[in-house]
Simulated scan of single mutants.
Amino acid sequence: MSMIFFACVVRVRDGLPLSASTDFYHTQDFLEWRRRLKSLALRLAQYPGRGSAEGRDFSIHFSSFGDVACMAICSCQCPATMAFCFLETLWWEFTASYDTTCIGLASRPYAFLEFDNIIQKVKWHFNYVSSSQMESSLEKIQEELKLQPPVVLTLEDTDVANGVMNGHTPMHLEPAPNFRMEPVTALGILSLILNIMCAALNLIRGVHLAEHSLQNPGSWFCWLDQTS
């Protein structure tokens, strides 16, 4: 029986998903835990190392080291030792496949989507291979958990914090102020008419002056002599 349902690799500093397993579960409860995992991924920098959040049917486990974290949604029947052993195996596989420079420069979600094949293989191995075949690895993780127990988170810790999701805060939109134009007064209308009349008179004078200059070109030079 499958006990590890979903797994993903994220970048710790900003929660950017780098790769994830194919999702075959679409129940409402499972989708709710996917949202919880996504919210928690944005705050992994607050919880270095290992941690768990358990509910009635599902649990979230995560393990981070450096800027890479592996996360999983498991059945509540899945032992924590097995979940963390799975996450550590996944972490080693991912960091062996991609260097820190590539991980740091990733700018879009699921930039290493091809790693999904490895996630599926490791997930299948832990879901269907007998635990006796992984005894040494499980014992190692169990000793580590005794020395340094994982952080235990409540369901509230996995909720969307202060409405933050995908790195964006909700915007509070206010209606634009409603400006009303004042009606034009009689004095304003009279001023506008006078300005138009003055402009028209100046235009007519300019046209007449140009016509007079063209008809009597000598008058222009005479006027210059008189003024000099």
Rank of each mutant, 00 (worst) to 15 (best):
M1H: 00
M3Q: 06
F6E: 01
F6K: 01
C8I: 12
V10K: 01
V10I: 14
V12A: 04
R13T: 13
R13D: 12
D14M: 08
D14C: 12
L16S: 08
P17Y: 01
S19G: 07
A20M: 09
A20L: 07
T22Y: 09
T22G: 11
Y25G: 00
T27C: 12
Q28M: 11
E32K: 07
R35H: 13
R36G: 14
S39P: 05
S39H: 14
A41E: 08
L44C: 06
A45Q: 14
Q46D: 13
Q46N: 11
Y47R: 09
G51P: 07
R56G: 02
F58T: 06
S59R: 04
S59D: 00
I60R: 00
I60T: 03
H61A: 04
G66F: 07
V68D: 02
A72L: 05
C74Y: 03
S75F: 06
S75M: 13
Q77A: 12
C78F: 03
P79E: 08
A80E: 08
T81P: 10
A83Q: 04
C85Y: 01
C85I: 02
F86Q: 06
F86N: 12
L87V: 09
E88G: 07
T89W: 05
L90K: 02
E93Q: 12
E93K: 12
T95G: 04
A96M: 09
T100D: 10
T100R: 07
C102V: 01
C102T: 03
I103Q: 04
R108V: 11
R108E: 11
P109A: 15
A111V: 02
N117D: 08
I119K: 11
Q120S: 15
K121D: 09
K123P: 05
W124P: 03
F126G: 11
N127H: 08
N127S: 05
V129K: 10
S130V: 03
S131N: 06
M134P: 02
E135W: 05
S137G: 03
E139G: 08
I141A: 05
E143N: 13
E144N: 00
L147F: 13
Q148S: 11
P149K: 10
P149E: 02
D157G: 07
T158C: 15
V160Y: 08
V160I: 15
V160L: 15
N162S: 11
V164L: 12
V164I: 14
M165I: 15
M165W: 15
G167I: 15
T169F: 15
P170C: 11
M171R: 13
H172P: 08
H172I: 14
P175S: 07
A176T: 10
N178W: 06
M181C: 14
P183F: 10
V184R: 09
V184K: 11
L187E: 14
L187K: 14
L187D: 14
G188M: 15
I189Q: 06
I189H: 05
L194I: 13
I196M: 12
I196F: 08
C198H: 02
A200G: 07
N202C: 13
L203M: 13
I204E: 00
R205Y: 02
V207P: 00
H208L: 10
L209P: 00
A210I: 00
A210R: 07
H212W: 03
S213K: 14
S213E: 10
Q215P: 01
G218T: 06
G218N: 11
W220F: 10
F221N: 10
C222P: 02
W223K: 08
T227F: 04
